[in-house]
Amino acid sequence: MTRFKLFIPLIIFMLVGAFFYSTMGRISEGDYDPQALPSALLNKPLPHFALPKLENDQHLVQPKDLLGEIALINVWATWCPSCHIEHPYLNHLAKKLDVVIYGVNYKDENKEALRWLKNKGNPYRFNIVDAQGKLGLDLGVTGAPETYVIDHRGFVRMRHQGPMSGAVWTQKFLPLIERLQQEQAAHSQQEPSKG
């Protein structure tokens, strides 16, 4: 029996090893992609940043400037092909459905970004210039476009990789946003003075 106890480390190791083996198998079969983690910030407040506004670079945008409403944060760039595809739908969301969208202009040239907005329409309340990709790094951006949902407290509630579209909006975003609206309503009832 005493001898048996000495086998415990081996058994534990074998279990851990088998687990690694199955993970390797799942990676090679494409069932598991370690890169596809959700934003590390899920259900956490926005990371700290102080970055210039695209429209007026005298003004430094900070997380507190994005609080108060349920909003989308859309990471985009003029060099990104899928951003061209999703742009009309973002315009539609902002103009027809009154969705608040903040843009993060990711690793881009200010001049070209402004020209793009002039030519294609501007769905954004304002844009944050993330020329070095520091904010993107903190958000966990792997490539543009990406869209985040934040609640009225500025907590990140969802991350979507890839272009926005009608299907994505109704299937993925709308249910969450409706829930968040209920949350917010409940929250403001609890604190009427602040509401």
Partner: peptide
């Protein structure tokens, strides 16, 4: 993944082997 598999097999041999020796 090929490298990962190699180290994993190596890990099995070294750690598994030494823990077996330990148990015995």
């Amino acid at each position: 993944p090929e490298r990962g598999m190699f180290i994993l097999i190596f890990l099995f041999l070294v750690v598994g082997g030494s823990l077996t020796l330990y148990a015995l």
